[in-house]
């Protein structure tokens, strides 16, 4: 499937590869094992060719785009020539950027317009490694985050909330405050119930209504210290009222849907809604009504 760029979309993304260097236990698009760079490269060139001018943000996702190595730099240069004013939003596990010179060259290829979204699964190395499915991933990811920032990228940290980390959300926030205070944004994200998150639900799944208290503690802590913080993918009705102002309409427009209960909800217009792709909806979805 080739998804063309659309100037009115909030998600114009090039899918760089389906391969990944991590094996995250809740991955919604489990990595492919075969070499797919060339086929996707051709598709991406076509997308760029057909794209309208003036796209403000170009996303690069995967898989792990950095498994492309030098070809990622080439891709970024092509994107830069096609959209000189666009910011580049790269979704990466950050590990390849533990090599500082690679981090510098990637940032340079975007002429400093790189926003890197990097998942941080825990403040505790072994938990992060367990969730990422690779021993040593935490150390490389944190080093990569520091290198990307040092090279001039804006780094958005993404904490995907799952059964293995929800009780440490406040500790993760403290780790960010102390060690990664330069982060441009910390986004706490609900899992998308598809792929491994669905297959492994018994082990990894946790309902937003079961972690909203932990989430509020983490969000309030970061906000108290003036770190930009956001909540993605959690419908407003499942957040504690104090956390709602941090929620974003984060679900790509082509994936967003609402439940029938949402018709009566006063906050529907401000809500991220639900993933159309989920195998099951979140528990406890309900309409928020001031009269109720």
């Amino acid at each position: 499937m080739i998804r063309d760029f659309d100037i009115s979309s909030n998600d114009n993304t090039l899918y760089a590869t389906g391969r990944c260097s991590n094996r995250c236990v809740f991955c919604c698009e489990p990595p492919v094992q075969h070499e797919d760079t060339e086929a996707l490269w051709a598709e991406n060139m076509l997308v760029l060719q057909r794209a309208p001018d003036g796209v403000p943000v170009v996303g690069i996702s995967g898989g792990e785009p950095a498994v492309l190595g030098e070809r990622l730099i080439e891709l970024l240069e092509i994107v830069g020539r096609r959209f000189p004013r666009a910011d580049v939003h790269l979704l990466t596990n950050g590990r390849a950027f533990s090599n500082l010179s690679y981090a510098r060259r990637v940032v340079q290829a975007t002429r400093g317009r790189l926003v890197a979204g990097v998942p941080l699964h825990s403040d505790y190395c072994c938990d992060h490694d367990m969730i990422a499915g690779v021993a040593g991933a935490f150390d490389e990811t944190v080093a990569g985050i520091c290198n990307l920032a040092a090279a001039g990228a804006a780094v958005e940290l993404r904490v995907v909330i799952n059964r293995y980390n929800y009780m440490r959300l406040r500790d993760i926030a403290l780790f960010i405050h102390r060690n990664l205070p330069f982060a441009a944004l910390t986004a706490f994200m609900a899992m998308e119930r598809v792929g491994l998150a669905s297959d492994n639900a018994a082990e990894v799944w946790i309902e937003p209504c079961d972690y909203s208290g932990y989430l509020a503690g983490a969000v309030d802590f970061l906000d108290q210290w003036h770190h930009p913080v956001a909540v993605y993918n959690v419908p407003l009705c499942l957040l504690s009222p104090g956390s709602r102002r941090f929620a974003c309409r984060s679900i790509s427009d082509w994936k967003q849907r609402f439940a029938s209960e949402c018709d009566r909800c006063e906050l529907r217009a401000e809500c991220c809604g639900l993933f159309a792709t989920s195998t099951e909806p979140f528990r406890n979805i309900h309409a928020i009504c001031s009269s109720a």
Binding site: D123, C126, A143, C146
Partner: peptide, 24 residues
């Protein structure tokens, strides 16, 4: 437990003599 994890993540104890994040 949680305390052990916090000690590790806050640079009080380390699995290696020189912590991998010594640069940080």
């Amino acid at each position: 437990d949680g305390l052990y994890k916090s000690l590790m993540s806050n640079f009080f104890i380390s699995r290696e003599a020189i912590p991998p994040l010594s640069g940080l």
